[in-house]
């Protein structure tokens, strides 16, 4: 029988996770760690992470869906670290915990949106990561992106109206200052993460830097699954991945899937099912430890 256990762990027990133990463990399989999607607690948007954890456990994988520090049931981590640095420490302490308590030594880290960026970051620095699934992770607007978008806009009256409004705003008034002020009010006090604004205001690293990091991750033998949706406004065509990171999609350790119809958080069950099957297929394809 599949069993779930709740654990507090990490520095001062600031982290929280639910571990799903498979009824029939797959020998030599990496343990899966699912990171927070933005500010959403460990259950994930539309409870997606619970479904994902139980389905992967059904395939024999040990899975932890976790709350990072200051998110969900995680406690703030002292020390004034930046969100990105904290996220890496949080994930690595999850690995440490699963190693100590469950004997895991290899990890498949995954996440959606901010969770994908964090999965990338920890994969760069931790050799124990043998696989990473990034759902709507880093996307850079390429020449092809702008070209396709322009073609789309030409045929869309809505885009004309939006463009006209933009021009009107640019000529007339500035609303950004007021918006920034309102946002900063929400960044404190009762807002999860205590630094929610920081999560959404992350500066993405330069494209070339991410490329170097991806090469480093892959050269280590780590497998990577990149899943993008049409709901991720920075990514609009399957070919965009090759424009961002030339030659990467063809490598045998890289899997790429684009779901143009799906929204960013998989509201519709058919879209979510397609994504879950993709992740399951990727997990099943991972080599077992000797």
């Amino acid at each position: 029988m599949m069993i779930e256990k709740a654990h507090r762990f990490g520095d001062d027990n600031c982290l929280f996770g639910i571990v799903t133990t498979p009824a029939e463990p797959k020998q030599g399989a990496p343990a899966v760690v699912v990171l927070n999607a933005g500010l959403v607690h460990r259950a994930g948007p539309f409870r997606m992470h619970v479904e994902l954890a139980r389905r992967l456990a059904g395939l024999g994988f040990l899975v932890m869906r976790m709350d990072q520090s200051a998110l969900g049931d995680g406690a703030p981590r002292p020390g004034g670290l930046a969100y990105e640095d904290r996220a890496v420490i949080d994930a690595r302490q999850a690995f440490d915990f699963l190693a100590e308590r469950y004997g895991a030594s290899r990890f498949h880290v995954m996440g959606l949106c901010a969770g994908a960026m964090n999965a990338h970051r920890v994969a760069v620095v931790d050799d124990r990561v043998v696989a990473a699934s990034l759902l709507d992770g880093y996307a850079y607007r390429t020449t092809g992106f702008w070209g396709r978008r322009a073609v789309a806009a030409i045929g869309d009256p809505k885009a004309w109206r939006a463009g006209a409004r933009k021009i009107e705003r640019a000529l007339g008034r500035s609303v950004t200052a007021a918006t920034a002020e309102a946002d900063s009010e929400h960044a404190h006090g009762e807002t999860p993460g205590a630094d929610a604004a920081e999560i959404f205001a992350q500066d993405w690293p330069p494209q070339a830097e991410v490329r170097v990091e991806l090469d480093r991750i892959l050269s280590r033998g780590t497998r990577m699954l990149f899943v993008y949706t049409g709901g991720w406004s920075d990514y609009i065509h399957e070919g965009q991945f090759d424009e961002m990171f030339p030659g990467l999609a063809g490598r045998d350790r890289v899997s790429l899937r684009f779901f143009p119809d799906a929204d960013h958080t998989y509201l519709l069950l058919a879209h979510r099912e397609a994504m879950l099957r993709e992740v399951e297929a990727f997990a099943r394809s991972l080599p077992q430890a000797e």
């Binding site: 789309a152 045929g155 869309d156 809505k158 049409g230 609009i236 509201l267």
Partner: peptide, 17 residues
């Protein structure tokens, strides 16, 4: 409303196309 939301289900082609 969510299904009809063009921002949620953004896609490169305009809806008419």
């Amino acid at each position: 409303a969510l299904i009809a939301d063009e921002r949620r289900f953004w896609f490169a082609w305009p809806s008419s196309v």
